[in-house]
Amino acid sequence: MRLGIRIRGRSKIKDYAYITARVRAKKKKLLPKETYQKLLKMGLSEIIRFLSESEYKEEINELSDKYSGVDLIERALNLNLSRTYRNLIEISSGDANLMIREYLRRWDIWNIKCVIRGKRIGASPEEIKSLFVVAGEFDEKFLGTLAELNSVEDVIEALSNTRYHRILRKYGEERWAELEDELDKMYYEELIDILEEEVSEDRKLLLKVIRMEIDVKNLRTLLRLKRDGVETKDIEHHLIKGGEELHERELRRLLTLDYEDLLKALSEYSYWKVIEEAIERRSLVSAETRLERYGAEYAHKLSYYYPLSILPVIGYIISKKHEIHNLHLIARAKELGIPSESVEEQLVI
């Protein structure tokens, strides 16, 4: 028995050695900070040329016959993100594979949200498909059929064999804002349950990152809605349970405060040092960007202490998402003629 445990322990090292080495090599290929400055100065066609010579080469070449301009960039970025994430699932094994798959299930929820939003505003199937990030349980074919359906009701029906159906049925099309919140809450609850099922160092570490992520999400919601003077009862259902520092009781206390008092109360938490400067400048966008960046930094920092664990992989998943977000943002801003300064503030770098 003892020997069995020891051998399993060794195989864990082997599993993680492989995937973390690959992920570290992949991380090196992410765009460095300085590149964004260059991209901000470029025009749309120059950005496409730049991307066609970078890691996005394959996707840009593949799609350049059918699409052009910002449409080409967005589709290529989403396709690249899907492929990168699916590749991580393919190259991982054992517990690491399970954790990556569970973590990436958030993209299923993103895809469901895209379909429902698209159907509500009458977007074409082609437009909806362009937003998909095929990294969760649903494959491209299934998502394609969802996008082709006629109404939200049909989409909910088509999802009847999935774990999301209960919530979809309960809230339906009429309460879609709540529906989106509930899907997010369900995702985090299930993820925490799965990670708490078995006690292992990796699960504990991932749980820490997830709880921090929930805190960041709740903080963003609180800051934004409190600043806009939204009623407490309207904020409450947006908040997600299971945070690291902002427990349920803390959240309830913060909910009762007004914006200025909320800022004072937040100085008790470790997140304050991240957002302090931005809040003093009265720039909420910048505070949100910093919190996002902090999430990735947290996973990377922890991964230095635990090099052979799931953390380098999760850190990479987050960083890759940020890179795609930044590129989306720059491409959209270029098309709409938004000045570089305001885009720069929103870049998560």
Binding site: A17, Y18, T20, A21, A25
Partner: peptide
């Protein structure tokens, strides 16, 4: 075993 796995992983990239 760990070094070999990591080396193969790095080489794959």
């Amino acid at each position: 075993q760990g070094i070999g796995a990591a080396a193969v992983g790095a080489m794959a990239e």
